[in-house]
Amino acid sequence: MDFFQVMKNINNHLKKEDLETLKLKKVYETDFLPAYTAFSETISPLHKSGLTEKILQLDEDRDKEFKALRSYLKAQKMHPDPRIAEAAERLINIIHSYGKNIERKPLREETSIIKNILEDFSSPQNAAYVTLVSAMPRIEKLAAYNNALEEVYNDRNRVEEAIAAGKAKEARENMQKAFSRLVEIINALAYLNGARPYQTLIYNINKEVSQALLTVKLSRKCGDKEATKP
């Protein structure tokens, strides 16, 4: 929802500019605007559903834990103990066998993939590797988030909410790609034609992104303080 608000603000800034003169009309109309419109249409009904927000938060937490586990195993591949390094190598290879960018998959597909990875990790041989690299705490957190999402999918009354959340995730990914492309083109044109015509737009975009990052940072600080309260 926060990301959508940032994109909404940036879209408003873009509409105030002479995009034809700035040579941004094409990328706006063919990339950014269609992605924004689709994202807006997907997000709008979700504002009414606290349950959907819970699903999206669970998915965000799960993605964070999955990436943390993967990064941890990659780091352990460099461990001075060759047994630990080999164990980490075997576990990371299991993850890689399920393809790239698993955290970007549709919600239910990602749930299924992670469930299979965790089942592979729990096999007798691989469980020994998990113990050797001390990865169980991370695996247990990932499993908890994944199981919570699976429960949502298995509840017939919540299937539509899960599908809506999956569509929102896909629309967000497409919006991010369109925004990144827009920024690349603005930077390229500013480099080729001079930055002056683009200064206001660049300033406004940077301001929106900086404010969003600050908000996230403050939210995480507040969360950390709450977590450490007795």
Rank of each mutant, 00 (worst) to 15 (best):
E17M: 06
A135F: 09
I139V: 13
E170I: 11
P106M: 06
R62D: 11
L73W: 12
E110G: 03
D59I: 00
A128N: 10
L51T: 15
T42N: 06
E151F: 08
A87G: 01
L213Q: 09
I113W: 08
L91F: 11
F32A: 00
Y203I: 02
H79F: 14
I114S: 01
D59Q: 10
R108H: 09
K48L: 07
Q5C: 02
L69G: 02
L214C: 01
D63R: 13
A168L: 14
K8G: 02
L142G: 01
G223D: 10
A144M: 12
S219W: 11
E103W: 01
P82D: 15
S122E: 08
T131F: 13
I10N: 09
Y203N: 03
G194C: 03
A195K: 12
E173P: 04
V183T: 12
A165R: 00
L58T: 10
N93Q: 11
L182P: 03
T21M: 07
D18R: 07
K8V: 08
A85F: 14
L213K: 13
F32I: 00
S71Q: 14
L218A: 14
G99N: 11
K169P: 04
E173G: 15
L91D: 03
Q211E: 14
T52I: 12
M136Q: 15
R181N: 14
K177M: 15
A135Y: 10
P34N: 01
L73S: 07
R90W: 08
E161M: 13
L69A: 04
I205M: 02
A68C: 04
N187T: 02
L73M: 10
E140R: 13
K77E: 15
Q199V: 12
A164W: 04
A190G: 15
H47L: 08
L142I: 07
K64D: 13
N12V: 06
A165N: 08
R70M: 07
N193P: 06
N193E: 07
K25A: 07
L22P: 06
E17P: 00
A171N: 09
A188Q: 06
K25I: 04
K48G: 00
T131C: 06
M7W: 05
E150F: 09
N11Q: 03
A162N: 11
A227C: 02
Q125T: 07
E65C: 11
Y145L: 09
A85R: 15
P106W: 08
L46W: 03
Y198L: 01
E150N: 14
T228C: 09
K48A: 06
K177F: 12
N93F: 03
L69S: 06
S123E: 09
I43H: 05
L46M: 08
P197M: 15
R138V: 09
M1W: 05
D61E: 13
L22Y: 07
N193S: 08
I92L: 13
V133C: 03
A148V: 04
E208V: 03
I92N: 14
K77V: 04
Y145G: 15
Y28F: 09
N9L: 04
Y36Q: 06
D61H: 12
N206P: 10
T21H: 04
E226Q: 11
N154Y: 09
I10L: 05
D120Q: 12
D81N: 15
S40G: 06
R90E: 14
I163P: 10
Y36M: 05
I102T: 05
R181Y: 03
